[in-house]
């Protein structure tokens, strides 16, 4: 048992050993020393007795959780688990959508570019005009979806009564 408190006088040492009297913390040699010290020191013996009494009383204090608390907690945890599950599902749906959009845009960009070039040629538009048109048309769906999502708040949030609202009320 190595502690700063052990460096002080024998009474202090004995009291620390009594207070920390877990089996794993005190060696046999220390226990013998403590027993010998208690034999000869009434004040430490009294401390040992009151410590034993304190520990006994501490262990006897009855505190139990009510059935209502347990059922409420279980219900809240289940509800939150469901919300987290829905969030995860939404997250994966959005990931899948992003992947699909990336693939589609990769495939269609070349075709769309050629289409715009052809229209520009037929209508005799200057090159910057049909190129600008291509950029606008190409980015428009993503911009619109972004605006819609932002206007509804985060796309991962629950739009019905969420856990945060429920717990704060």
């Amino acid at each position: 048992m190595n502690t700063d408190l052990m460096n002080s006088d024998p009474h202090e040492r004995a009291r620390v050993m009594i207070a920390l009297s877990g089996r794993e913390d005190v060696s046999n040699r220390e226990r013998s020393w403590l027993a010998a010290h208690l034999e000869s020191c009434p004040s430490c013996r009294e401390f040992a007795e009151s410590t034993r009494e304190s520990i006994r009383s501490l262990r006897r204090i009855p505190i139990t959780a009510s059935a209502r608390l347990i059922s409420t907690t279980q219900m809240r945890v289940r509800q939150r688990a469901l919300e987290l599950q829905r969030q995860t599902e939404r997250f994966w749906v959005i990931c899948a959508c992003c992947a699909a959009v990336t693939v589609c845009s990769g495939v269609t960009a070349a075709l769309l570019w050629r289409g715009f070039a052809w229209i520009g040629q037929q209508a005799s538009f200057p090159m910057p005009v049909w190129e600008g048109g291509f950029v606008v048309i190409y980015l428009m769906p993503a911009v619109l979806v972004g605006i819609l999502l932002l206007s509804r708040g985060t796309f991962l949030a629950d739009h019905d009564r969420s856990y945060q609202d429920w717990s704060s009320n």
Binding site: T3, D4, L5, R15, V16, A19, L20, F47, S50, T51, S54, I55
Partner: peptide, 13 residues
């Protein structure tokens, strides 16, 4: 931790 337990028990005495 040891010191807190010791001092706690002493305070409960």
């Amino acid at each position: 931790v040891k010191s807190r337990i010791y001092r706690g028990l002493s305070a409960l005495e």
